[in-house]
Structure formats: C-alpha cells, structure tokens
Design a binder for these strands. Sequence first.
DNA 1: TTGTATGCGTTATCAC
DNA 2: GTGATAACGCATACAA
Lengths: 353, 353
Amino acid sequence: MDVARAAQVSRQTVSNVVNRPYRVAPQTLERVTAEILRLGFRPNLAARSLRQERANALGVELHAGSGRRMGDIRDVFLVELTIASRQHDSHLVPFAAADFEHPLPAYEDLVASKLVDAFVLTDTRHDDPRPAWLRDHGVPFASFGRVWDEPEFSWWVDVDGATGVADGVRHLLENGYSRIGFLGWPAGSPIGDDRRSGWVEATTDAGVFVPAWRADALGELGAAAAAAAPLIEAIGPGGTLVCASDVMALGAWTVLRERGLTPGADFGLVGFDDSDLAESFGLTSLRQPLTDVAENLLSILEHARLGGNLPTQGTVFRPTVVARNSTNPLGAPAAPATGGTSAGNRTSSGGST
Amino acid sequence: MDVARAAQVSRQTVSNVVNRPYRVAPQTLERVTAEILRLGFRPNLAARSLRQERANALGVELHAGSGRRMGDIRDVFLVELTIASRQHDSHLVPFAAADFEHPLPAYEDLVASKLVDAFVLTDTRHDDPRPAWLRDHGVPFASFGRVWDEPEFSWWVDVDGATGVADGVRHLLENGYSRIGFLGWPAGSPIGDDRRSGWVEATTDAGVFVPAWRADALGELGAAAAAAAPLIEAIGPGGTLVCASDVMALGAWTVLRERGLTPGADFGLVGFDDSDLAESFGLTSLRQPLTDVAENLLSILEHARLGGNLPTQGTVFRPTVVARNSTNPLGAPAAPATGGTSAGNRTSSGGST
DNA sequence: TTGTATGCGTTATCAC
DNA sequence: GTGATAACGCATACAA
C-alpha cells in the first residue's frame, strides 16, 4: 500500500485512519490523511466487500416492459435513490427481471452472488411474490409503497394520497373555485381509492361535495379525456377537476382546449405526481416528496445493517401542492407552458423530515 | 466450499466448471454442475472482482438536474443498458455527479475505489471534460453519441438523424402527403442540424422542398407550439410537419386540435424518438434502436476488457418509422390515443446488427 | 497508539 | 484432467 509507505506507517494504521479515525493519534491521522489525499487513495470496495461479507449495495428492479408511460415518476425516484445512496456509503445495482411475472430468479441471483445485500422495492402489489420470498430468505428490503400482503411489515414509506388530494381541493377553494369534481380510477385500486377519499372528505368538509361530479377511467390519456368530457359538461364553466394523476389531468386539459376553454381561467385542473407533464402543460399538481422517500428508505436499510432504530410502523409523507396556471383563475396563456414555469410559485403544505 | 465437498472435487475444479467447462472431464462436469444447481451456488462476485482485479461493472451517470423532461428517452435507454449488461456478465452502477458542471470527482471516486472499470457516456457535448479525463487516466468508456472533441475516438454509437428524418419524409410521401415542412431547433446544434438536413435532402429528392416551410424553436412545448402555428398556417390543410422531437410534434398537435383539425386526416405530423408522448398522442415517430445501441456499447467494452475486435470507427444506427394516426390520412379519432396504439403498425426501415 | 497475523472466496499458475 | 498453492486488498482480533 503506497499510502502506508509514504506516511511511514503500517497498512493497518491506514485502515484505521479510514474507518476508525478516533483511534489514531492526531499527528499520525493528519500525516496519513495528507498522504491519502495526495495519492488519491480509495479503499478497494471489492476487497472491503469480501472482508466484511456484505456488498454495501442495494438492488433496484427496473421494469423492462414496453417503455415508459407518460406521467411516470419512477425514473425521478431512481435518481433520488442514486443521490441518497451516496450518503449512505452504498450504491445501487439496477436490474431487470427477464420475466416480469416471475421476478424472483433475478433477486435470487443478486443475493446468491452477494452483489447486493438488500433491495428497494417499488410497485408492490397484491400477490406480489417478492416480499414473502425476501422475508423467507432473510434478505432485508424496504418498500416505496405499502406492502399490502404483509400487514406487520413496517419497512415501507408511502405518500398520503388522500391528504394530498384534500390539499388540492383546499388549494382550489382558496383560489375561489367551489365546483370541484374528481376524475380517478375505477374503485378497487388502493391508491385510487385513497386519492378519491381525499376529494370526498375535503369537499364534504367545505360543504361542496357533489357525488355526481365524479368519473372513472383507466390510466390512458384517451380514456381520461373521454371520461372528462361529460364531467366538464356537468360541472360547467368555472368548475374544477381534481385528478388522480397528471395523465388524467392532461386528458381533461385536451378536452378544455378543444372547446376553446382556458385551463385555470375557465376551468380549474389539479393533477397528481408533479410529473414532467404537469410542468410542461402548466398543470397544478401534487408533488411526491421523493427526496424524503429515498432518504428514508435508505436510512431504514442502513439501520438494519449497522443496527439502529428501526421503524415499528410505516412512514407516510404528505405531498405538496405545486401551483401552476391550471388553477390560476385570473387567466393563463394561450399556448401550453408559455409564460413561465411558475418557479417560486409553489405552495408548501406540509412534508416531513 | 460446499459444492466442492458435495461433488468430491477440489475448489479449483468447481471454479473450472464455472469458468472453463471445456477443461473439465464430461463426467466431472456433470456431477459438479448438478451440485451447483442443487445447492444454488453462485460465485461471490466480490471475491472474483478482487482476484481478477476488475469490477465487471460499468458506471452510468444519471443527471440529477431538475427532474425529467417530456419526451426524454434516457430512462428507456437505461433499462436497455441494464438488460444488455446481464448478457455481458456485468452490471451497472448508476451515479449522479454532485455538481453537474464538474462531474469528474464522481468518476474519479468510482475508478479509484475500483467499483467500476469502465463507463457508458451519454449526453456528450462540446467541451465535455469527461472523454479527455477518462482517456488520460486509461479508463475505458463507450459513448452513446459522438464524442465531438476527439475525432479519433471511435468507441461510440449514434443514431442517424438525417436518414431517420428522410425516412419520415418518405413515409409521408408514401401516405399521399406532399406538402412537408420542418420544425426543428435553431441552427448550431449538431443533432438538430443533422435532422434538418434529412428533411432538406429527402424533400429535395422528391422535388417538394420549400425552404420557407421551416421554423425553429427551443425544446419546450410552448415555444414549439408558437413556432408551429404560423407554419401550419403557411403550409395549409393537407400539409405535414416533420419535427426534430416528439415534444415539438406535440406542440404542433396542440395547435391543430385547438383549431379543430385532426392530426393525420387534416394535417400530418412526424415526431422523433418514439417517446411515451408519441405513443400516447398517436404521433408517428422515429424510433431509436436503443436495444441495439445498448448491446453495441456493451460489446465494445467487453471486447476492450477481454480482447477482441475493437471498432475503428463509430457505429451509426438507423431509426425506424413507427406509424401512428398522425400520419394516417384516412382519419384519426377525436380523442388522443384512442383507437389503438397501432401495435403491429410499424414500418421497418433498416437497422443494423 | 501502532503493528502483526489471519482469512474473506475466488482464480491464475503450475505441478502432478 | 485435476488439485495444491498463492495472492488479490481489506478489516478484525489480538499482541506489542
């Protein structure tokens, strides 16, 4: 080891400087540190991994499926995870299951070859085979999204869709709108039901709940537009629509534009996720605090590794209203996304550590 | 090593079975292989990495910047890279530079700690500090996109924008359109100039080149719509617009819809990249062969590692026209993305290895 | 506070 | 065709 020679100490002392600086005499510490910087020394992570019998790496499954869907924020989340992983002395190993329906072999590979020692799960669903398998094999994991099939599992972080939508409703009320409908997914999906309940609660609280002002559609843009059209008709000018996703809000947006209506001035729209679509189309939306989510998940896994406080229940973060022109009653530009991206126009409404 | 004991051979023989099966007697091979499967043995990759003094891993920089942009296909490319990496006995290590303007420390970290032994670069630009640094430090890398500043560097793969756009023009001609304009970026960007030249060439070849039917805009939706409006006016009904990106095509799409025109039936549109936008809005677009690009880049790096044929010049792939309703002169649905996603409606036009 | 010895699991080398 | 030996770089335990 060059550093050891240069600083005239043993290899072991260098190791101590890196890993347990408090054990080293200040003078030695300084000298060795200087040499480390000078020579650009970094511990060989493969050797460390071998010695410690852990990889300091997290597996993250990417979905191989047919490309990306509009309004998706998984890639933003991946970036947040990547950034957060640096501060937790680990790195990510992305992988894609050969067969989306049978992801376990891919997980097994990574575990058996000790390339990773934990996983971050996303898109957990009913009958998801992964949580049970990971539990049975003693592999730590944390999930973005509740693990529905294992109620006692607490290493998850989620976003409070109901409160988010309720905040969106209140944002509309504060901006002078009062006729507020909801465009969501058909009943049955946990996330969709959660978001819809926020609309019911907040409009009821404000005394403006109209059950009929609700429609369902599947995720695609065309279906959302088709469902939005009669709803916009029913609610009428000056009304608004809170949507379960940005894609749905965009569906409504297209309907408005084709009728010559201006989003915001003529009819309010609120989306969900604050995706690229929201920014480009000037849609007010509910931003998921992905930075916090990523940080929290990595904290859990780090504590699981090193010992520390582990959560006894899941963590729920509150989304934030990002106000844009689609809820600006004073008027919006004719072209999409023209007239500023409303930077600094954000309304904060909560959020946790 | 359990497998060695179970199969009554030495560790080394197990290693040979895994890495050099041809050196092992068929009978032994079979016995050991059976035990490997039975016990689920996988080589410890940290140990292998340490022994071989290489990580078998590739660094991929993610851009931490302000979220994702509409029409971006980098995440799709990342998935393709991830999938391809499996077949090349390696894995990816995504990372984000703390400071986008000064990415080198992040690269240095990964190299010095031997977490990766090569990089895949994307978004190479003029005055990009990365290629020179990597070269000077002897770190192999391959680039998606030409490396402009180092003409002699040949480990890159790119997509032929000019030919792609020309194919788009021909696709329009085949579908009966003849008035073909171009909406692109201001002159000066290599990619934008490349794509525009395809329009000039193909329309000139067909004798339908009209220099005035061209407009420029920056990447955003609003600017594209603003630039598209007068162009659509000038070209007139029954005309078409080939665009440098799907976002631009979408900008034109919004203009059409607001005028009550139906994309395809009333005015043709062709985008570029075949992003999520193209699929959702029914835009005909030019698909970059990202699977081939990823595979090619990994091949280069694998050959660099193991020794093999290395490219003496860059590789250029040809995009593929993906036909959708925006170039269907017979008519398109009223709502976006309704009426099928045109699966199986692809026109293949080239492609390599 | 610092140094020495050991082994993590693998594979390259070389002897058999 | 197979096996013994050594070494990759680090961190743990323990000795000095």
